[in-house]
Computed example of a mutant assay.
Amino acid sequence: MNRSKEVLQVQLLRYVILVAGVALLPNKLLAQKEFYTPKSLFIPLHDQKNQLHMSFGRGGGYDVTLSYAFTNKLALFTAATFDKGTKKRISIIGDRYDVDRNDYTFKGGLGYFSRTDNNEFPLLEAYVGAGITEVDNYWHFKGDADGEVTQARYWSVFGQINAGKRLTKSEYGLGLRLTYAQYTDFNFRNTHPNASATQSNYQNLRGLTADPAISAGYTLYGVNINAQIGVAIPLFAPSVERTDTHISYEGSTETKTFRSSEDKIHLYALIGRLSVQYKLNFNQKK
């Protein structure tokens, strides 16, 4: 029976790696300005006191995550993600474009973990936390140096529930996160060198998302190779005030024209991550 479960976990890992690979491919099929960049769910599956969980991965940038169970029920965690470089994209109509990114995310929080009598999901976790994200990207079509700059900053708070299981050589988990995000800055502008330019911004953009995810991992030489795939689903999209500032020049005279409107912005995104994880148990269970 244990052998069959191990085989099932390996098959699950292969499937999740395949799907996560699609989410992480440099050529996405969905064209976005990528101003909302939720990171992977935190699923360490703690089960004892004095357990240190370390993780390094790739998913919306390179990230590192640390968590420590300081009691038999409570854990602290922190994570940082840095996304810098050029990403290649394909729009749904086949146009190729690049996104030059220089983003970062920091988050942390507190968790509660426990064991249950459920054979399939004996480990349960609940986490609350907060984070801050800064987005600085420049996108342009392939072969064209002119495009659009997006600069945004938002903070978020979240609550999350995990359920999973660890076996001798594998583990799997399910997670559901509710995230509220509030933008403090959101500006974008074109970079076309013509006689006029447009600068735009959104005021008070916010949103609530449900972020379900599945993860699976296989352990080799004490290191767990883990894959995760998920999606951020918007639960509401309030109207947001948009202000467009058109700037034109006649000689040395600058003229600005303002236009206000309302938009509905849905905070949605794919979530994917490949990582290596390691646990240190400073006091082994008896």
Score class of each variant (00 low, 15 high):
123 L>G: 03
147 G>R: 05
84 K>P: 02
144 D>L: 14
142 K>Q: 14
102 N>L: 09
92 I>A: 15
138 Y>D: 10
95 D>V: 13
133 T>P: 04
88 K>F: 12
82 F>P: 00
78 T>P: 03
123 L>E: 03
101 R>L: 02
119 N>G: 03
96 R>T: 13
105 T>N: 02
107 K>N: 14
126 A>N: 04
66 L>N: 05
110 L>Y: 07
70 F>Y: 14
72 N>F: 02
107 K>W: 11
99 V>A: 05
90 I>L: 15
93 I>Q: 08
83 D>F: 00
133 T>Y: 01
84 K>H: 11
70 F>I: 05
68 Y>V: 05
65 T>Q: 14
147 G>A: 04
100 D>V: 14
140 H>T: 05
72 N>R: 12
72 N>C: 01
113 F>E: 08
142 K>C: 00
149 V>H: 12
117 D>H: 11
98 D>R: 12
119 N>E: 14
72 N>P: 02
71 T>R: 03
89 R>M: 12
96 R>A: 09
67 S>G: 13
131 G>A: 06
111 G>K: 05
67 S>P: 10
70 F>Q: 10
70 F>K: 09
99 V>I: 15
93 I>A: 11
87 K>Y: 07
71 T>W: 06
146 D>E: 11
101 R>F: 01
94 G>I: 12
122 P>M: 03
137 N>L: 06
141 F>D: 03
125 E>S: 05
84 K>C: 02
120 E>M: 12
96 R>S: 13
120 E>C: 04
67 S>L: 10
116 T>W: 11
94 G>C: 10
111 G>H: 09
137 N>S: 11
